[in-house]
Design a protein around this nucleic acid. Structure first.
Length: 281
DNA sequence: ATTAGACCCTGATCGC
DNA sequence: TGCGATCAGGGTCTAA
């Protein structure tokens, strides 16, 4: 379920909590995920220090002292729990342990748990220096928070593309990190119809999409960050954050801008929410 | 090459 | 209470 902002928030928390920490032991409870968890994880990573934790699209990458890269993806239902003695005192909300896939114990007593009900997530290993050539990363699109992401580049991506703009925004081989929720939110704020073929957008539309993409993602990260504090105090779970959305999940509710009931349609098996009246472009 | 749709898996919820 | 249909914020594979 997490999109770029949620993964970013998780990454920041993990970085704060685990960078510089040394892995004591990794236990694989259930290797069955989108890619099976490699059985040699513990052998490869035991007694190794975590140098850095970073985000690539919706992937989380742990740079390990021995130049291995531990790669994780949360899929739809993946959640991460970090517990240490202090947090454990406050630990109230329990995940269903049945879906714990992996536990990492650290030398300082912290415990990291990867939990994924639907098993669409993944945990795997790669060489850190060869990350960009890795099968998972080699054909990824542009990162919204990078120099590459600008109006010109968007224009280029949209040009000659018959695909609907909503599906283009969600296509991770073109643009990274925008998922089903934020695609709807961005188009609402940019006042563009989700089924509009990308190539039909004019330069004003493109400028709006550029601006609103960044704004929506930044807002969500900010919201995640502020939520995080409270989350950690009461619970080690850093998987889910509830943001307030303008259109997502609001079918039949009045549009916040004009009062027209929000529409729900299906594009490529995914729900899209939009306002027929506001999003005519 | 590009696109829409089926599919992977489990659980919650809704209508009958 | 039970049952089926539908839905859920991910990506990948395939057929056209």
């Amino acid at each position: 379920m997490p999109e770029l902002p949620e993964v970013e928030t998780v990454c920041r928390f993990l970085a704060k909590e685990l960078e510089g920490k040394v892995i004591k032991e990794i236990k694989i409870l259930n290797p069955k995920l989108r890619i099976p968890i490699p059985s040699n994880l513990n052998t490869k990573l035991k007694n190794q220090k975590i140098l850095k934790i970073l985000r690539k699209g919706k992937y989380i990458v742990f740079e390990i002292q021995n130049q291995e890269a531990l790669i994780m993806h949360l899929g739809m239902s993946g959640r991460i729990l970090v517990k240490n003695k202090k947090l454990d005192l406050y630990h109230k909300i329990k995940l269903n342990d049945k879906h714990n896939h992996l536990i990492i114990n650290f030398e300082n007593g912290s415990e990291f748990i990867f939990n994924d009900t639907r098993k669409f997530g993944l945990i795997t290993l790669a060489k850190f220096t060869e990350l960009n050539q890795h099968k998972l990363f080699s054909k990824l699109g542009i990162e919204p928070f990078s120099e590459e992401f600008n109006r010109k580049k968007l224009e280029q991506i949209f040009k000659n593309r018959t695909k609907s703009i909503k599906l283009v925004l969600m296509d991770s081989s073109l643009i990274l990190g925008i998922g089903n929720i934020y695609a709807s939110e961005i188009l609402f704020r940019a006042k563009i119809h989700p089924e509009k073929p990308a190539k039909e957008l004019n330069s004003k539309n493109i400028a709006d999409i550029y601006k609103q993409s960044l704004a929506v993602l930044e807002d969500a990260i900010a919201a995640g960050g502020s939520t995080l504090k409270d989350y950690i105090k009461s619970d080690g779970d850093i998987g889910y954050f509830q943001h307030k959305f303008l259109v997502y999940g609001k079918a039949d509710k009045p549009c916040s801008r004009c009062g027209t009931p929000i529409s729900r349609i299906v594009q490529s098996n995914r729900s899209t929410f939009f306002c027929e009246r506001c999003q005519k472009n």
